[in-house]
Computed example of a mutant assay.
Amino acid sequence: MAKSLPPFGWLRSFEAAARHLSFTSAAEEIGLTQSAVSQQVKSLETRLGVPLFMRQARGLALTDAGRRLLPEVDAPLQALAAAMDIVDTGPAKNLLTIATSVSVAHWVIAPRLPDFQARFPGLKVRIHCAIWPDDFHSTRADVEIRFGSARQGGIDAEPLLPNQLIALKSPSLRGELHELPLIEAVGTSGGWQAWAKRVGSAPPPSLYTDTYGMALHLAAHGNGVALVSELLADHALKTGLVERAHPASISSHEGYYLSTAKDKPEALDFREWLLGSLSLPQAGPVAHAGG
């Protein structure tokens, strides 16, 4: 039986870190947090059974195994990027292209999209689920919604609110927060450890995933309590898929940032509609470190 390949994200993080010899610089290029890149590289090393980097006080250095692997990973990544450029034929008439994450497409846009299409019935919409910064560039999207820090959001990007982190669970899951399994969205600055510092003690997470969207999906299916962006949770809360597991919320260092093509009226219409639909009341007290 053929050996399965590691996840694409692990290889992308390794390639970027190897070029920059820095997890921080790789994270800024890719659009992830430094901890997410570091963890993905560590997962790849565990999978391969060899260290790929030497972690030094002054930065990273490739091991012999890392130097051998880099050109083997770099070549197919460049080939994939070239293939995407060939296939992407560019914008069509009367088409609005939105590039965003699966989480935003699933939990924010999809539930509200019927209302937008009812207001603009002649407009076709293409939703491109982008992960890496290269994906955003290659799609030539009219609207982009990126996740990360304000710097990663891009110049002239505006934050989508609310941006607090709240604890959510399925209504069928009984018990207090400290009694229930916790779901952690890996690679974000705000997690259950931050919750414990600002709100109160919490047990170690027992289930890990890489996006707030998946954490919310797992919580809705009764797998535990997820700490996720309030922006994503609005529809799930209103429809009863999840409920608050605790009344408090904590601030987040990352968020979702909207960029709009100023020269396309349809994109400006989408921006105005989206911001209007996200005018949500803040729910629950906000806990801040150090008061």
Rank of each mutant, 00 (worst) to 15 (best):
R126N: 08
V125Q: 00
S101W: 00
I155P: 01
G122I: 06
V108Q: 08
S149H: 06
S101G: 10
I131S: 09
D134C: 13
L95M: 15
I166F: 07
I145F: 04
W107L: 08
L168P: 05
G148E: 02
L161I: 03
S101V: 11
F120H: 14
G122D: 08
S172L: 12
N163E: 12
I98R: 00
C129A: 13
G148R: 04
L165I: 15
R140V: 06
E144I: 06
C129L: 05
D134I: 07
Q117L: 15
R119L: 14
V108Y: 08
L95F: 09
V104M: 02
L113Q: 08
H106W: 11
L161V: 04
F147D: 03
N94P: 05
P133N: 15
N163V: 03
F136D: 01
W107Q: 12
G148L: 04
P121S: 07
L161R: 14
R126M: 11
L173H: 11
T139E: 07
T139H: 02
A130N: 03
I166M: 14
F116D: 01
L161N: 08
L95D: 07
P111D: 08
A157P: 00
G153I: 00
T97H: 13
A141N: 09
Q152G: 05
I127N: 00
H106L: 10
N94S: 11
I131H: 09
S101R: 01
T139I: 13
A157G: 07
S170P: 09
P162Y: 05
V143A: 00
L113D: 09
